[in-house]
Design a protein around this nucleic acid. Structure first.
Lengths: 362, 362
DNA sequence: GACGTTGATCGAATCGATTCGGCACGCCAC
DNA sequence: GTGGCGTGCCGAATCGATTCGATCAACGTC
């Protein structure tokens, strides 16, 4: 005897009212007398009715209260980056006005398993790091008439995107270093494309990732000739690998390193210290993101604080606005420069001076 | 003119077939002739119909294809722990057999915002780190007749839970240290309760968190008198704080530290190195979890590798089983001991060996 | 040539709630 | 006493798809 779950009609009958009245008691859309309200609630308790079936409700209302968040990689990988997790936090916040929850979706371009973007009961979608191969699904979502917002990625025209002033911000950090007197600067970048290969970026290298390109442009606007080394991913260990390469040759050692993420910066610092270089006395390091890097203490990174949570919130509020037929706004966010303890005037000034001195002595 | 989206009936009419046939073409539940199939698909393309409305479909089927994942804290905080993110990965994997996606839900015990466990269209729920205050919502879910699995937490009786052999595993690490010759050991624990206060655990301290208690018991089964210091959270910086406290007094310095997580262990190592102690020569350190700790290289932590991904997968498969009216199984998971480069015989041992050697020489 | 069989298609009921125009009733004012 | 009005409840249509037994056509067989 699989006792069918009670429906709102059952409750209504038990309470001696019509289904519409019972429905209203639960939704509160229309005022009801205290007496019927109590009767309905009592009947519901009697029958073990715990509220309207969300499936039926969402069919009728045409809303499911769910916003899809689409990643283009393994969930575990995506969440490795603190910026992502903070953004998720903000996103959860931003859509809460809608009373919506987040549905995790993954688009690796070839999944057969459902539900995907095709079939998920979502009211809106947020694409994270929209890569080219996500274009297809993006099309599908748009065809379904579902509002979409893209965060940190290149969608097609007409699709709202949450944007950061990456170039401008990065150039602020560069100007800071320049003002301190630095001239020999190396840049450690995020991956340049989906192949995620490490290596020096020469003029022929195509930088296909917007974030990487923008930040690089920002740094180069101040140091046009600064060499750039791309990392395979944004992590401390990757930063350390890059750092070791950079500090390997004492003769070609820069006085400052601009890292495109805090994690990379932390790794660069690690590498510097391994080689006995002091930060910031011997080498200055800047990061990007402004996240709390676990294990970096007691250093305080000089960095660009990215409003990661705000970014998520902005995306959330944008989809909320679109669902209300409004035009999303507030999508342009700014990073703020934060001076920490990892930048200082270059020490090589002295070396150069020393060499000059020796030349003079000759 | 907000042109209503086409329905399957529209498509059917356009194609000159009945709605049932059109439905079947999309679901593939019943064979159809190639000709009608083509006609229906063409009609759909014509009308811009992109497939059945998931809301209506889920109402009819009684399934939404969504599994709720419930956290008791901020999403951002939860995802800070690599174990959690890996588990999410496994979970996504485990429920994929169902063809289900994951809905992120948060229960901080007082949210008014919907959808919550009360109203989310979920087929099943997975509770992560079920704390006492989640009991209420747990009750609600059960009342709704939704299958629930608890991971790493204390739910009520009759609720399936994914369990780790924490005590047994931790004692294996302790035995390893003992076999190496260690006698002076200090334990660094995870938080003991929701207050997350740091401090030495004396016999009067109530350890309210299962994981902490179990691992502590495992360590104490080998070193009954080992002092234990609780950290405020599982992070490198917290581990470093604990480590500094432990290594502060040279006279009371242990030869080994058992940390209840890899992150804590990494912090302890950091603290040791700050004080000029070499790992493992001067002090051995063990972790727990077996995650990749970013920034720990070149050390390889001696630790208990926890099947984090498998844990998630097990939870996913458990709810899948429950949805098929089967009894979930495979919920008991084991950690495996991994010997890294952070444990070695205590320095005093070498002295002892040396003495033995000298005795032989005599 | 009648009949059984197979395979595709159709009809109609159903999933469970929401919504809105209308109706009945009681109250106040003129 | 009657007309006007505000409250609170009801009926019935609707949201869009799925499912299953019934139907129907075609085909092979004896």
């Amino acid at each position: 005897m699989s006792t069918r779950r009670a429906t709102i009609s059952d409750v209504a009958r038990e309470a001696g009212v019509s289904p519409s009245t019972a429905s209203v008691v639960f939704s509160g859309k229309t005022p009801t007398s205290e007496a019927t309200r109590a009767r309905v609630l009592a009947a519901a308790a009697d029958l073990g009715y715990t509220g309207p079936d969300p499936r039926a409700a969402s069919l009728r209302r045409g809303r499911s209260g769910i916003v899809g968040v689409v990643f283009d990689q393994h969930l575990g990988t995506a969440f490795l980056d603190p910026v992502t997790t903070h953004m998720m936090d903000g996103l959860a916040d931003g859509v809460s006005r809608l009373g919506a929850a987040l549905l995790l979706l993954r688009d690796d371009g070839e999944t057969v398993s459902e539900p995907s973007l095709h079939t998920a009961p979502i009211d809106a979608a947020v694409l994270i790091g929209c890569s080219p191969r996500m274009r297809d699904s993006l099309e599908i979502v748009r065809a379904r008439g579902i509002p979409v917002v893209v965060v940190e990625g290149d969608a097609g025209v007409g699709i709202p995107r949450v944007l950061l002033d990456n170039a401008e911000a990065q150039s602020a950090a560069a100007r800071h270093l320049e003002a301190l007197g630095h001239r020999d600067v190396v840049i450690v970048t995020l991956p340049v494309d989906t192949s995620r290969r490490r290596g020096w970026i020469d003029p022929g290298t195509a930088v296909r990732v917007d974030v990487t390109a923008d930040r690089l442009a920002g740094a180069r606007s101040v140091f046009p000739d600064a060499p750039a080394l791309s990392a395979a991913t944004s992590s401390i260990d990757e930063g350390a690998i890059a750092g070791r390469a950079i500090f390997a040759d004492p003769d070609r050692r820069p006085t400052a390193v601009i890292a495109q993420s805090d994690l990379l910066a932390a790794g660069v610092i690690r590498a510097a210290e391994e080689r006995g270089l002091r930060v910031p006395q011997d080498v200055s390091v800047t990061g990007f993101d402004g996240v709390v890097v676990d294990g970096l203490a007691p250093h305080v990174l000089t960095t660009l604080v990215q409003p990661a949570t705000a970014k998520g919130r902005a995306a959330g509020e944008a989809v909320a606005a679109m669902l209300e037929d409004a035009t999303p706004s507030g999508l342009d966010l700014h990073c703020t420069f934060r001076e920490g303890t990892t930048t200082a005037p270059p020490a090589t000034m002295k070396v150069r001076d020393a060499r000059t001195l020796m030349l003079r002595i000759e």
